[in-house]
Write a protein that binds this DNA or RNA. Structure first.
Lengths: 338, 338
DNA sequence: ACACTGAATGACAGCGCTGTCAATCAATGG
DNA sequence: CCATTGATTGACAGCGCTGTCATTCAGTGT
């Protein structure tokens, strides 16, 4: 008695047989990778269609064919920044027929290392990572992997292979200069859990440096040990203003989510922005730009980072020249909150 | 003369040789898939480490081993809803050592079909899709694929295999009932490009049905042919109020982004919410809940949809029973804008 | 008419691993 | 002491495809 068996997926050799050609010819026809008579092409395609043939890329890649998978490791999806980056990546990769294989490190270097090995074991064509304190072991694995690797977000680093991003320190510095130029004298800072966010730290440093150059310093600073959010920004500003320290005339927030929370607090507490208090953020999220009064912020080009990183991978795969460091820059957005 | 050749990655057989065991034993040791003496285990692990061995899952999967990739097809990453779903998916998948392989259909059924074939050619363990008008061909491919398939977001459908989501019609209906109960008499609607968003259409239908049951009808309706955004909602409400039709006492927006735009318009135009105009959205985004006045909305459980969908895939893979339809429900959020 | 060229096709081997089944061997029970 | 059992290991074959090199054959130049 025959055990009922799901009819196996048709293989290339069955397609070839039906089309009356050799396996390898069928392979070439279906990949358009080498010269095949239009006639043969037609026969093979017909055969494939009538059998419902679905290419098995596992076998193809194992046999030496190219992979069209690109490993992507991000620290989180909760922060809108990373979906934006991912969007840019996906867009460009998709154009070239590539797919991201995703891993989320949760800002954990150990998890990151684990993900690197795991994703690499599928022999992807390239790897894009927004590092979260990569271990030396991680770097070593990437170095030996022999595939294009792009580290994204930050370019104040020494990448294993390539890096695409912006200088967060420069962004903080630029914002400080801008605001100093507007005449603010007693700046304060409200931040989220920045121990996990070296880029926010870099912005803060740059901001401080900018103030320092103008003979100013932060009047006060509040950091809360939670991931950034609108609610947290609101809470953070309330806390800041509650203290009986020198009242700031300006608050620089660790990012736009936080800053929008600050704006909401002002709305609710009847604080005039920017007359009583100016507010600035970072990222240039749509959210902040759709407020009744546009948020002053620095626009980071997140999607462009993704696109550019994907471009680096693709360029490298096609043997084109690639830059080690790519600065996508940032732009200061002079909104109405400062 | 020897062409310089990147030292090939060590293979399992080299590890086995170094460890002094057979290939298959090394394989088992590294997978912990069958009984191996602690001693052998140690030897093999040491050998693997000292060689910098990196498992090749391409070969493993081809040889009949399991895949830990799950294809995920979403219509977009621009709408925060989908990153939320993806987060839920990734979370649960990661727990089980699985990775999402991502494809974005851009709401295009043809692209969707293309993605399905493409991703399936990597022989993933399962597939999760937020359908965008799946073609019959797509459904057929999925049916024949012989892997767990979960269609997400909507459960008002007839899925190929499983579906996880909520009834958007019911959500619209519930919101209508709630608002009718609050005494509003002249409701209006502001929506985005809903031709591409059947779920928004379903909510609108449900909303209309709810009104109808109470002897009411939509006083006015504005739909704009762009993807939803805060700015678009703002613009939409302005347009609605600009018309010299009966003034609404309530506007139901196609989603929270749009509704928040509406709130912002009211702030800017000096319209008191909810005294002059009530506003309701859909999704329960953090954004709306952090407004100075919390937005009235329906919370969709996006992350839970992702988690549940991943759970279905995993359950099926482990031979556990799975439901064909899973309703994750929704919850009405009575905010201050109504 | 003949060697020569290039396009189209094919034979072969093997990518690196795991499922299946068989072999080995110490421990157990009578 | 011998058959039986279960735990551990190994031999073998093959997953489905593509790179490499060889072969075929029509078209070209002299």
């Amino acid at each position: 008695m025959q055990i009922e068996k799901r009819p196996r997926k048709p293989t290339l050799s069955e397609v070839a047989a039906l089309a009356g050609v050799s396996e390898i010819t069928a392979s070439r026809a279906l990949r358009a990778s080498a010269a095949v008579t239009p006639e043969t092409l037609q026969k093979v395609q017909d055969a494939a269609r009538s059998l419902g043939y679905l290419r098995n890329r596992l076998a193809g890649a194992l046999a030496g064919g190219p992979s069209n998978q690109v490993a992507v490791i991000l620290p989180s999806l909760s922060n809108i920044v990373f979906p934006d980056v991912l969007k840019g990546l996906e867009d460009r990769l998709d154009d070239a027929g590539f797919h991201p294989v995703l891993g989320i490190s949760n800002y954990d270097p150990a998890q990151e290392e684990h993900l690197i090995r795991n994703l690499l074991s599928w022999r992807p064509a390239g790897l894009v990572i927004a590092p979260s304190g990569m271990t030396e072991a991680s770097r070593a694995v990437l170095r030996d992997a022999g595939l294009p690797v792009v580290e994204i977000m930050d370019i104040d680093t020494d990448p294993v292979d390539m890096a695409v991003g912006m200088s967060h320190r420069a962004a903080g510095l630029a914002m400080a200069r801008h605001l100093v130029g507007r005449g603010y004298k007693t700046p304060a800072y409200v931040g989220h859990d920045i121990t996990r966010d070296p880029r926010a730290v870099a912005r803060l440093e740059g901001f401080r440096a900018g103030l320092h150059q103008a003979g100013l310093a932060l009047a006060d600073i509040v950091t809360l040990a939670s991931p950034s959010s609108v609610a947290l920004g609101r809470q953070g500003l309330a806390a800041l203003l509650d203290r009986n320290t020198q009242h700031p005339d300006l608050v620089y927030f660790s990012n736009d989510d936080m800053a929008v929370g600050g704006v909401f607090h002002c709305m609710a507490a009847g604080i005039a922005v920017p007359a009583d208090l100016a507010i600035a953020g970072f990222n240039g999220l749509e959210l902040g730009q759709s407020l009744p009064v546009r948020l002053t912020t620095t626009a980071s080009h997140r999607t462009r980072i993704g696109e550019t990183a994907a471009g680096c991978i693709l360029d490298r795969l096609q043997g084109r020249e690639t830059a080690r460091l790519t600065d996508v820059g940032f732009s200061l957005v002079e909104g109405g909150t400062s």
